[in-house]
């Protein structure tokens, strides 16, 4: 079974935010209005963490795009009372929107604050809700959602591969954020495939994962010359 993983090269990433926007568009993530967004309810599956190190004038900024880390040992799925979030056998941590009761326990349990909640009925471009991605369902009020590693794209490429009667190739399954990144900072692939780009990058001396000590085994690696 493949284990899908993402490698984000922070030495390439400029923090432009294209991945955030691409993710929202790809996954029909609602647009949160002014009042709500300012109240801390903005919806980003791919979030951006900005930190500054050092004191003026030797300040360095660190920007870190943050999807769901798709932990191999996810604390979020363990607590779900109804199995509305679970880790499938390809390592993708999925949400079942129509089963979720909205208790937000998984949000509280995720050490990386990656999950978001539909506090109100989701909204999109007013009066013109027509550029939905037809491959991704829209969510209803009261359920939790998060980065899915664009699982629908996996579905898609699998269908193509099946039609053509061949196995999936490295680089065929590309999430929207990785595809759009102007710095080519996001690599994606199968950690079980030793020839894959992500496998090699994940072994790089620059590679690390966020809070590795927690033992939740995130499948998102960050590459950086700076020690994180």
């Amino acid at each position: 079974m493949p284990r899908w993983a993402m490698v984000i090269d922070l030495d390439k990433c400029t923090g432009c935010g294209a991945c955030m926007a691409a993710c929202k568009m790809e996954n029909n993530v609602a647009i949160v209005d002014s009042k709500e967004a300012q109240a801390g309810r903005a919806l980003f599956w791919m979030d951006m963490i900005t930190t500054y190190e050092g004191e003026y004038p030797t300040v360095a900024a660190k920007r870190m795009p943050k999807p769901c880390f798709q932990c191999d040992n996810p604390p979020c799925t363990k607590v779900c009372p109804v199995r509305a979030t679970y880790r499938n056998n390809e390592g993708l941590v999925a949400q079942i929107y129509h089963r979720c009761i909205g208790c937000r326990y998984c949000m509280a349990a995720c050490p990386f604050t990656t999950k978001v909640f539909n506090w109100y009925e989701p909204q999109w471009l007013e009066g013109a809700n027509k550029c939905f991605n037809p491959d991704v369902s829209v969510r209803a009020v009261g359920v939790v959602e998060k980065c899915s590693f664009c699982a629908h794209r996996l579905q898609h490429v699998k269908e193509v591969a099946d039609l053509e009667k061949r196995p999936l190739q490295d680089g065929e399954y590309v999430p929207a954020c990785s595809e759009i990144c102007p710095a080519d900072a996001i690599s994606f692939g199968d950690l079980e495939n030793k020839d894959s780009a992500v496998y090699k990058l994940s072994r790089s001396y620059r590679a690390s994962r966020v809070m590795e000590d927690l033992g939740v085994e995130p499948k998102v690696y960050y590459l950086s010359k700076r020690v994180s």
Partner: peptide
């Protein structure tokens, strides 16, 4: 039209886009 992505072969951006263009 349901979505846009960068044109991988276009020499200016080689598939990349900025957040604005995605809109």
């Amino acid at each position: 039209p349901v979505s846009v992505k960068g044109n991988r072969f276009y020499p200016v951006n080689l598939g990349g886009m900025c957040p604005l263009g995605i809109n």
